[in-house]
């Protein structure tokens, strides 16, 4: 069923130290590491950052093939970046195609920028592979909570995400049922030009929306009947607690950040252009 894919996202459920980390810690680490990746600008920095990412991947017990699959949609951008850097960086020439000169500096730069992109994507995929959407939602709510005073509707956003995740499979099933019912009555969803197709969507969308609005009405009433009054003072069935492994992860990240900044100052850039 496709719906399962929707609520689970990319989540790969196994027991691992990374899976059992506090989702708040994982989100914060992913964001900080993202910044660190853009601070690192030479060979040593990439060695340190690569080692950190590799350790996280190893500990997560996520098969490497799943992480590589995450790279597929950006393969084109990856090659594009490599080629552009190869030909547009000035320096000693390796070979020449017409007016385009491939340079050694370009090759090195292209490889580094490509590598940064690969680490970036693999590390973000690791977050969604080891954390279920519900955990991510709850973690995000906690992280955004301090900004509630500035007007960020942290609880409302998280509540909407949770309800949406819960109802995606239900509504998907409903959409499929309505489509079949309308096709049995002779509806044609698959031919004609853009105007005709837009029109053919109407017999699917009207019942789908009407049913979604009714469901929303029922759910809101049910929530109210059970005393839901918004985020203020609300408790959760499962509260997050930072454990030793989370603190250890923060320490590792701190060390990596310090090292990357150190080698940046000490050895200077290999990458002269940002991504």
């Amino acid at each position: 069923m496709i719906g399962g894919g929707a609520i689970m996202g990319q989540y790969y459920p196994v027991l691992s130290p990374v899976h059992s980390m506090d989702p708040r810690a994982k989100i914060i680490i992913a964001v900080v590491f993202m910044v660190v990746l853009f601070i690192g600008n030479n060979f040593w920095a990439f060695l340190v950052m690569g080692a950190f990412a590799a350790l996280a991947i190893y500990l997560s017990r996520v098969p490497i093939r799943l992480l590589v699959r995450g790279l597929r949609p950006v393969l084109f951008i990856l090659l594009f970046t490599l080629v552009l850097h190869l030909f547009l960086t000035p320096g000693p020439v390796i070979f020449q195609i017409g007016p385009a000169k491939a340079t050694w500096a370009g090759l090195v730069q292209g490889l580094f920028v490509g590598l940064r992109l690969v680490i970036l994507i693999m590390f973000t995929s690791l977050l969604t592979l080891t954390t279920s959407p519900i955990e991510l939602t709850d973690g995000l709510e906690d992280i955004l909570k301090p900004f509630a005073r500035l007007g960020v509707p942290a609880h409302e956003l998280a509540m909407m995400m949770t309800i949406a995740l819960r109802f995606i499979p239900t509504l998907l099933e409903e959409a499929e049922r309505i489509m079949k019912a309308q096709m049995a009555r002779g509806a044609d969803f698959e031919s004609g030009n853009i105007v005709k197709r837009a029109k053919s969507l109407v017999p699917l969308l009207v019942p789908l929306f009407v049913s979604a609005f009714r469901r929303a009405d029922d759910l809101a009433m049910a929530m109210e009947a059970r005393g839901y009054r918004g985020g203020e003072g609300r408790t959760r069935m499962r509260e997050f607690h930072l454990a030793l492994r989370d603190y250890l992860a923060f320490v590792y990240l701190g060390v990596v950040t310090a090292l990357v900044i150190y080698v940046r100052i000490k050895f200077g850039p290999v990458i002269t252009r940002p991504l």
Partner: peptide
């Protein structure tokens, strides 16, 4: 809020 959540779910289903 609930209606918005359901609309997001419809968008996903579509």
């Amino acid at each position: 809020l609930v209606e918005g959540a359901l609309m997001v779910a419809v968008a996903f289903a579509l």
